[in-house]
Design a protein around this nucleic acid. Structure first.
Lengths: 204, 204
DNA sequence: CATGTAAGTGATTAAACACTAACTTCCCCG
DNA sequence: CGGGGAAGTTAGTGTTTAATCACTTACATG
């Protein structure tokens, strides 16, 4: 088409393996679904983001819902990884000041570390937003099944990693869900995650 | 409905004032939106629920999104009312046992009372589910504006009604949001709201 | 009864969307 | 070189859906 040699016609990216494409599509899907939800997102938007044709999505994933389910898995995977990472080296955050959220036992310290890990996820806002969309789409049986399963696995993971009491873990997750909601509303806590509740609650 | 006078030709309900209809549509909308979200709900479903024709929806509300916005207001109104009611007579719940969530000061007692009020909202699951859908639809500017506004008003209300510290109020809302999420996943806490976290966290 | 107004519907439309089918282009391997 | 398979596209289908419009039915009031 163009005059010159073999130059990629325009911004179009080179050929890639189907698996690589699938990963790209998956990340794009998380981003789009995070903003507009299962029903509010069109496969065309996702395709545009990856710069492939819309029908090609359906060669990579059998259906839109399957893509959504895969996105759920990817999202929870990423969160779990963040937690595992935080649990492995919790020492790197003993920043003199107290958050006041937890006690001082070694257990609570670990939970505290993971709390900061979750706060760190705020940097990838789409992860929190997508979670909300996943919960919101739970009137669909398949979605609900997957979400439940991953949620329970996540709770178990945090419980085991932290060794914290059920009570503590509950409040830990409660705070996390509050963060999700606040993130959805676009009231993002400040970077440290320290005084985030401050603004979140409207006393900014 | 009986044989006698003025039997409506078929199951169709009688004529009503536009305002009355608007209220019916609004309640139906909350129910449907709660399950399927802004984009997942068709105006036809809502119309069917009220047993009116689909186009009539658009005589009562200018657009689907306006209906959604009105539903947001109705939902938050209902929650606020529940809170106000709980704050007015907090004595009616001193059930010997402790929840362990709060201290024993008169302030915390009031917050505690409102906590049970929120737990009571579990009975109307659609209210919690709709809230989630509202948060999830926040990538829309108008929706986000409305949700933020009502959220802040709610936080202020709870703060004033309870007189509790910012910290307490934060954790109060955190628990509430966790309840929303758990409700979305269909893991409903037991009636008393006592040991609800139990099952919520997968130790059922 | 005449008449004006509010309640409500059926038919329709234009766009968006998930998904299919058939075709082309590129690259690797013998 | 050539052929086969994988990557990717263009064109198209059937359906759903928000919104419009022209129309009818019920009711109140003078």
């Amino acid at each position: 088409m163009s005059v010159a040699t073999k130059v990629r016609p325009s911004g179009a990216s080179a050929r890639q393996s189907a698996d690589a494409r699938r990963q790209q599509v998956l990340r794009a899907a998380v981003a789009e679904f995070a903003a507009y939800g299962l029903h509010g997102t069109s496969t065309e938007r996702i395709a545009k983001r990856v710069k492939i044709s819309q029908p090609y999505i359906f060669r990579l994933f059998p259906s839109k819902k399957d893509l959504f389910l895969a996105a759920i898995d990817q999202c929870f995977d990423r969160v779990e990884n963040a937690f595992r990472a935080a649990a492995e080296n919790p020492e790197k955050l003993d920043h003199g000041t107290e958050c006041g959220h937890f006690g001082n036992g070694p257990v609570d310290v670990r939970l505290h570390a993971m709390g900061h890990a979750y706060a760190g996820l705020l940097a990838e806002r789409e992860l929190l937003l997508f979670q909300m969309q996943a919960y919101a789409a739970c009137s669909d049986d398949e979605v609900r099944g997957r979400v439940r399963q991953r949620w329970q696995a996540l709770v178990n993971l945090v419980t085991e990693l932290s060794g914290a009491s059920r009570e503590s873990v509950t409040m830990y997750f409660a705070r996390g869900m509050l963060m999700n909601v606040v993130a959805s509303m676009g009231m993002v806590p400040d970077k440290g995650g320290r005084a985030w509740a401050h603004e979140a609650l409207g006393f900014a």
